Lab assay of single mutants.
Amino acid sequence: LQAFIKTLTGKTFTVEMEPSDTIENLKAKIQDKEGIPPDQQRLIFAGKQLEDGRTLSDYNIQKESTLHLVL
């Protein structure tokens, strides 16, 4: 599935991932794409901060969901 990552500066980019991917995997993909170390990334979806060990499906993240990236 493709999801949108929106930063506080208003920049939006897309990442490809599977519902079974962990938040940790997602942070690694963001690092590959944007060069931001995972330990500096905080991802917010539906008002909740996402925990590394959980999966996208745990948070009911669907295709074309928008996640907010806070540094």
Score class of each variant (00 low, 15 high):
1 L>S: 06
2 Q>F: 13
2 Q>W: 12
3 A>E: 03
3 A>Y: 15
3 A>C: 15
4 F>M: 10
6 K>W: 07
6 K>R: 12
7 T>C: 10
10 G>D: 03
10 G>N: 04
10 G>V: 03
12 T>H: 07
13 F>T: 01
14 T>Q: 08
14 T>L: 11
15 V>P: 00
15 V>R: 00
15 V>I: 14
16 E>D: 11
16 E>V: 11
16 E>H: 10
16 E>Y: 13
17 M>L: 13
18 E>H: 14
18 E>P: 03
18 E>I: 11
20 S>P: 03
20 S>I: 05
20 S>A: 09
20 S>R: 08
21 D>S: 08
21 D>Y: 05
22 T>E: 02
23 I>M: 03
23 I>H: 01
23 I>A: 02
23 I>C: 01
25 N>L: 13
25 N>I: 14
25 N>G: 08
25 N>S: 12
26 L>M: 06
26 L>A: 02
27 K>D: 00
28 A>H: 12
28 A>Q: 13
29 K>M: 08
31 Q>I: 02
31 Q>D: 04
31 Q>G: 08
32 D>I: 13
32 D>E: 15
33 K>S: 09
33 K>D: 03
34 E>T: 15
37 P>I: 04
37 P>E: 06
39 D>T: 10
40 Q>G: 05
41 Q>W: 05
42 R>M: 13
43 L>M: 02
44 I>A: 04
45 F>M: 08
46 A>P: 01
46 A>T: 04
47 G>I: 02
47 G>K: 03
48 K>L: 12
48 K>A: 10
48 K>T: 12
50 L>N: 01
50 L>D: 01
50 L>Q: 01
51 E>Q: 10
52 D>V: 05
53 G>F: 11
55 T>E: 03
55 T>D: 03
56 L>A: 04
56 L>N: 01
57 S>K: 11
58 D>A: 05
58 D>R: 02
58 D>M: 05
61 I>T: 06
61 I>H: 04
62 Q>A: 11
63 K>D: 15
64 E>N: 15
65 S>G: 07
65 S>T: 10
66 T>W: 08
66 T>M: 09
67 L>T: 02
67 L>R: 01
68 H>R: 07
69 L>Y: 01
69 L>E: 01
70 V>I: 13
71 L>Y: 11
